[in-house]
Design a protein around this nucleic acid. Structure first.
Lengths: 187, 187
DNA sequence: TGCAATCCATAGTGAACGCTACAGAAAGAG
DNA sequence: CTCTTTCTGTAGCGTTCACTATGGATTGCA
């Protein structure tokens, strides 16, 4: 019932897989690249994580959870405008962080459309809240604004991956803010 | 000196390659997929177009030329704001055109960063012209606005590929226009 | 009709892919 | 110690990859 314990740290290996998928993408990442980066032989990898697709699911879910923390943290700001401002500037910073791969795995990987849709939904709800709080004008359509912000962040990710400087990416975020109308001044 | 003429139309075969690369992407497109789509056997493909990378260069250049026609056509509008409006709405329409693959090859394919940079440069020049014409305020930085618009269009491409409806994509374009400031009214 | 040139179809190259069978090594349980 | 269980390393499975050698088919030209 006991058996030999595994000789590697599963969490560390998974973190290495996240970094690799993030930097290279799913299709371009081979099993041999994964075993090298994770410090594990193929049979150990398959025993611990299943096949490549299952491993990617787990890795991308781990990544997604971190994204959601950032989204929730930004959404906790008192006004929707502040929430959006924080989200965009934090996105600009993260996408050009030299300590991680450039851009965003969730916004880049074609097969993660469901994650994007989930973030879009959270963003939509926060914007709806902002409308009912009166810090966004009632004329806006929350889902459309959320989709616009998702599009901008995806564009920021692509700009970062193309070698755009942190200030280039931050400028995109700053200009996007100009698209968000102020509410009519309540007297 | 004469020799047997080729039995396929080179332009038609190249157009099929463009469609396939556009729909599937460079890495995910195999030679066998290309030979099927183009109606050509591998030796004929290699004789007519060189290797896969060379074929992609030719196909993406053909695609790029069509993009540039659209950009130039939009840029010919009398004001920069009109030019941008046309460019965004035409992009929204093209990215969801059911007669072609969804999204944009140039904005999607990682190795086409040079083409994106070229479009960004054209856009920057048109915006500079708009500033000097007085139909954009002198406070804007042309390169930043161009990068913002590129980011939005890339986001529109991703939205379309994720299954966003034409009206979803068009809404992104419409909201982006709100980010462009009016010039101070010249009396 | 024969020659030279060019293209096409079959078939297969070596390499890399995702994945796994197998046997030995390392742990707890008795 | 032995037994059982689980992990590890080697080595290789079948498939697909990009790409090409070879030989026959089809043309223009003499």
């Amino acid at each position: 019932m006991a058996g030999r314990p595994r000789s590697f740290d599963r969490d560390e290996a998974l973190a290495a897989a996240v970094e690799l998928f993030w930097r290279v993408g799913y299709d371009e990442t081979s099993i041999s690249m994964l075993t090298s980066a994770m410090g594990v032989t193929p049979p150990s990898l398959y025993a611990a994580f299943g096949d490549k697709s299952t491993l990617f699911d787990e890795a991308s879910t781990l990544y997604f959870d971190r994204i959601c923390e950032g989204v929730d943290s930004a959404a906790a700001r008192p006004t929707a405008r502040e929430a959006i401002t924080v989200m965009l500037s934090e996105t600009a910073r993260a996408h050009t962080d030299t300590g991680t791969p450039l851009g965003c795995l969730m916004l880049t990987e074609p097969r993660l459309a469901a994650q994007r849709e989930a973030v879009n939904a959270r963003l939509t709800r926060r914007i709806e809240q902002g409308v009912s709080d009166g810090d966004l004008p009632p004329t806006i359509r929350p889902h459309e604004l959320a989709s616009f912000l998702m599009a901008v962040m995806r564009g920021m990710s692509g700009c970062a991956r193309d070698g755009g400087s942190p200030s280039d990416v931050a400028a995109i975020a700053r200009l996007a803010l100009a698209a968000i109308p102020d509410p009519p001044a309540a007297t």
